[in-house]
């Protein structure tokens, strides 16, 4: 209950600030608000505002359907969240989605809502899903050389 209340408060604060509302410009972003990395796939048809408020309900509903009833043909799975929202590092490998500044933690740390998903679930897509990530554009030359410097050090 407290968690939910906090989420609502924070989210309404975020929406009020116009961060995701589309009206705000980059200059208006407060340094206090979280920077949420962009996903790679298509946008949710329900809209980001809807997902922001309801993702936990959708996930919980469908997880029980899969877990208890064996229904694998569901719309919302954590696996797909991770596959689409994960970022790749300079080494082209996925960064754990719950590490600092990544998709899940960026918002959840800001909202002070602890999530329990990744004690059991993998924080990165599996290798076959990683293949798809490799087709993403390569990091630019500057980032690449910075990475190489870091590695050689």
């Amino acid at each position: 209950m407290i968690t939910r209340l906090a989420t609502i408060l924070v989210l309404s604060g975020l929406l009020g600030a116009g961060l995701f509302g589309g009206a705000a410009t980059a200059q208006e972003h407060s340094a206090l608000l979280p920077v949420v990395p962009k996903a790679t796939g298509e946008a949710h048809p329900e809209g980001n505002a809807f997902m922001r408020i309801n993702h936990m309900k959708l996930l919980r509903h469908d997880r029980d359907d899969t877990m208890r009833n064996g229904n694998r043909d569901i719309d919302y799975s954590l696996k797909e969240c991770v596959a689409c929202h994960v970022q790749t590092g300079a080494d082209a490998l996925p960064i754990p989605i719950n590490s600092e500044g990544q998709f899940c933690s960026a918002c959840h740390e800001f909202a002070a809502v602890k999530i329990d998903c990744f004690q059991c679930h993998n924080t990165r897509p599996e290798l076959n899903e990683t293949q798809a990530l490799l087709s993403r554009p390569l990091p630019d030359a500057a980032a690449l050389s910075a990475y190489l410097d870091e590695v050689t050090e």
Partner: peptide
């Protein structure tokens, strides 16, 4: 690095799932 179809984590109990993820497919 758990398998995405076989989540498992500290502090819980687990056992053979009869590879339920394969059986369902």
């Amino acid at each position: 690095d758990q398998k995405s179809y076989a989540p498992r984590g500290k502090g819980t109990v687990e056992s053979c799932t009869l590879c339920v993820h394969r059986v369902d497919e």
